[in-house]
């Protein structure tokens, strides 16, 4: 049982209480492992000190890749590999290439970004998630604190701070 990870969890009923609690818990020197909610809580990133997601950059880069691939493909096929004059247009009619270029750009940007999202958030069908509380996906917010990361503070003290911050329940949870 040496390698087990032990957590203290505070259960919160309301998002505004939760946000105040995050500030209070952080200012008392406790490192928060993560906060779990049934729905996206507006502004929680700032309270937890999370940086803005870099996913838009991923989307932009994949979009750039899409434009490049689409134009290269069309110019290669129509203008270079098997040049043909169709409808009196020249071999490399850029305006005709715009719709397909646009579609491929959107396709790669979306799939690329979603792929990065899946990998970075560790979403996969065979994932074995650490579920702190079954009510997280229903109606409770849960703040999880990794005991090993807060060894400077006594366990009882952490529990007390969680209680005073407005947690309706304070529990312990261990994972292998």
């Amino acid at each position: 049982m040496e390698r087990d990870i032990h957590f203290v969890t505070g259960v919160y009923e309301d998002e505004d209480v939760l946000l105040q609690a995050i500030t209070q818990v952080r200012s008392s020197g406790i490192k928060i492992h993560e906060v779990y909610s049934p729905y996206p809580v507006h502004g929680i990133d700032d309270y937890l000190g999370y940086k803005r997601s870099k996913l838009p950059i991923a989307a932009f880069l994949f979009g750039l890749l899409g434009i490049t691939l689409a134009l290269t493909m069309q110019f290669y096929m129509m203008g270079f590999d098997w040049p043909m004059i169709i409808g009196g247009k020249d071999n490399a009619p850029l305006p005709s290439f715009i719709p397909v270029t646009f579609e491929i750009t959107v396709l790669l940007a979306s799939f690329g970004m979603v792929g990065v999202f899946m990998v970075s958030t560790n979403l996969k069908p065979w994932a074995q998630p650490r579920i702190f509380d079954l009510r997280i996906t229903d109606d409770k917010h849960v703040m999880a604190i990794d005991i090993a990361n807060n060894s400077a503070m006594e366990l009882a003290k952490i529990e007390e701070i969680l209680k005073s911050s407005g947690a309706s329940e304070v529990n312990k949870k261990s994972f292998e």
Binding site: E34, V35, Y36, S37, P38, Y39, P40, V41, I44, D45, L48, Y50, S53, L55, F117, M118, S120, T121, N122, L123, K124, P125, A127, Q128, P129, R130, I131, F132, I136, T137
Partner: peptide, 13 residues
């Protein structure tokens, strides 16, 4: 897909 509702995941979501 192993979703747990972490604040980080919601932010990315």
């Amino acid at each position: 897909f192993g979703w747990v509702g972490a604040a980080k995941s919601w932010s990315r979501y």
